[in-house]
């Protein structure tokens, strides 16, 4: 008999989506210092999905993040929401890592744990690549269930509702599976005060590249498969166009939207 599920939720710490974000001119990487850091919003919904699964079936939720030491704040928040334990991969050599490297490192970390399901958000609000779940499925050999809006488990079968242009399809797979969830899957809970106080005592393991057996000179900005070659600041916002309604306001707005290819 199974004693609940081992679920790993991948959480990324990102700059506050609502703040003015920028890149550093020194190496074209994200400027993390000048803005507040938060959990990538849709990852919170992955945490919620994981917590609901263990509430229904028993088991543990491990929160895994790769990032600077400060990413432990995001793990701690997930622990205060109810996750069981945390796992942080932090190494200065990972600065500027591309998504291929990220997938390799996280897959290596996953190989050190026992897990049935990996849950994560569909994309991060900073890089917005949305390919990590697929790369991880490839690297681990687990089933790939992406773009999910609903996750259910029965025995060792996982079902998700995958959103598509027509509506949704139901996709099933056996565990182990990598699942990415979309915005609107469920409303993430707020940490309770008891949860916040309990989170301090929950285990949070921090590892570096050496611990995972990965050579520092294979990763990081210098070895990334993608590079930001240049960037420009967003141009100042232009004054909006006023449409005067002379009985044909609706038509004018429709024409405008069509001219912007929005209709």
């Amino acid at each position: 008999m199974r004693l609940g599920m081992n679920i790993v939720v991948l959480v990324k710490q990102v700059p506050d989506t609502w703040a003015e974000r920028s890149l550093k001119s020194s190496d074209n990487t994200l400027d993390r210092e000048s803005v507040d850091a938060v959990i990538n919003e849709v990852d919170e919904q992955a945490i919620e999905a994981g917590l609901r699964l263990i509430e229904a079936h028993g088991g543990e939720v491990t929160v895994l993040s790769m990032g600077p030491d400060r990413a432990s704040e995001s793990i701690r928040k997930a622990l205060s929401m109810g996750a069981t334990k945390g796992f942080l991969i932090s190494d200065a050599a990972l600065h500027g890592a591309c998504v291929m490297q990220t997938a390799t490192v996280i897959a290596k970390a996953l190989s050190t744990m026992e897990w049935d399901i990996v849950l994560t958000g569909g994309e991060s609000t900073d890089a917005r690549l949305a390919v990590l779940p697929a790369l991880l499925a490839e690297a681990t050999g687990a089933a790939q269930l992406t773009q999910a809006r609903k996750v259910t488990v029965e025995g060792s079968t996982v079902s998700v509702e995958r959103v598509n242009e027509a509506g949704y399809s139901v996709i099933q797979a056996s565990t182990p599976a990598i699942i990415s969830v979309l915005e609107g899957t469920n409303e993430a809970r707020y940490p309770s005060f008891k949860g916040i106080m309990a989170a301090k005592k929950k285990p949070l393991q921090t590892v570096n590249l050496g611990d995972l057996g990965i050579a520092a000179d294979e990763v990081g900005l210098a070895h990334a498969t993608t590079a930001v070659t240049s960037f420009e600041n967003r141009p100042p916002r232009q004054a909006g166009a006023a449409v005067k309604d002379e009985g044909d306001g609706g038509v004018k707005i429709a024409d405008y939207l069509a001219s912007r290819k929005l209709l």
Binding site: E73, S80, Y190, P191, F193, I196, K200
Partner: peptide, 14 residues
């Protein structure tokens, strides 16, 4: 403390 900030931020978010 971290805990005090976390409680405050949770209330503010809610």
């Amino acid at each position: 403390s971290d805990e005090e900030r976390a409680i405050r931020d949770t209330v503010a978010d809610f």
